[in-house]
Amino acid sequence: MFDGSLRANLVLSLPALALAALLTILTSLLSPAFLTEANLGNLATRLLPLGLVALAQAIVLFAGRIDLSVGTIMSLATAIMALGSLNLGWAAVPLTLVAGVACGLFTAAGVILLRINPLVMSLATAAIVKGVTLLLLPSPGGEVDYVFYELVFEREALFGPPLLICLAAYALMFLLLGWSRMGRAIYAFGSDAKAAFANGVSGARVDLVVYGAAGGIAALAGLFLSIRILSGDPLIGEPYTLDSVSAAILGGVALQGGRGSVAGVLFAALALVLVNNMFNLLGLDTNLQAIAKGLIFVGALVFFMRTSKSEA
């Protein structure tokens, strides 16, 4: 079962696994508070939105594209939840997800119909989504029904709903990307768009699927974020854009497309959450985190670009 490209792609995820393991050991040695039930629950709570948005970015990267609008889509999702969850109840959930998918499809439409560079088109989408979010919710506020919180985050434990939801999303995507026709088409398109086209893969359909899925999953990430903070925030998602690319690259996903596995992305997202947790537990300046994140990102890019060059 684990042969060929699948094995090669899983190997790419090993550095992220090693980093996550190293950080776990390091933090538990440095801080006695690390291995407490409350902190592990906190880790899982933080992993959920970052893990989901990293998954969204990874799907786009597999196709050799990039989506710089995932962070703003998360913000939009928190705004919709904060404004809609009390009067719409459960209907707010599908509404949020549909809005996210629509944002992704907008990017795809620009790429397919108007032939705009995908990177720039996603930047344009990000600006528009940010504007719409600020129209809906000019400043942090609103309220998310506590019912949702009880359901997802009430029980602070490592193996609670947040971790299970995250793992389920990754498992589903692992199967879909590895064994479905569309999943293989995404990898094929990312490795070599021309060869994929010659073999009957529609580039337009790949774009629609990856950007639509990324928008939907980013909205899901924002949905859980709004449940955690019990409100909406029009700017809360922005740092997640770079984090999502960072986690994907660190997880062994190639920017050129066609390489990497969602397993690595999960480990990388975990590693980023662990870095954040370490800063908090050791009482370091939270602003240093932004610098650390930037350096990790550059380091990951350098590490993986080097390896891919030596293989070529």
Binding site: L114, I128, K130, G131
Partner: peptide, 18 residues
């Protein structure tokens, strides 16, 4: 509202490049 500025930014990029 200031939000309109961001929508315009995005719309300009899309229209100009299209």
């Amino acid at each position: 509202p200031p939000a309109a500025k961001f929508i315009m930014q995005g719309a300009i990029i899309v229209v100009a490049l299209a």
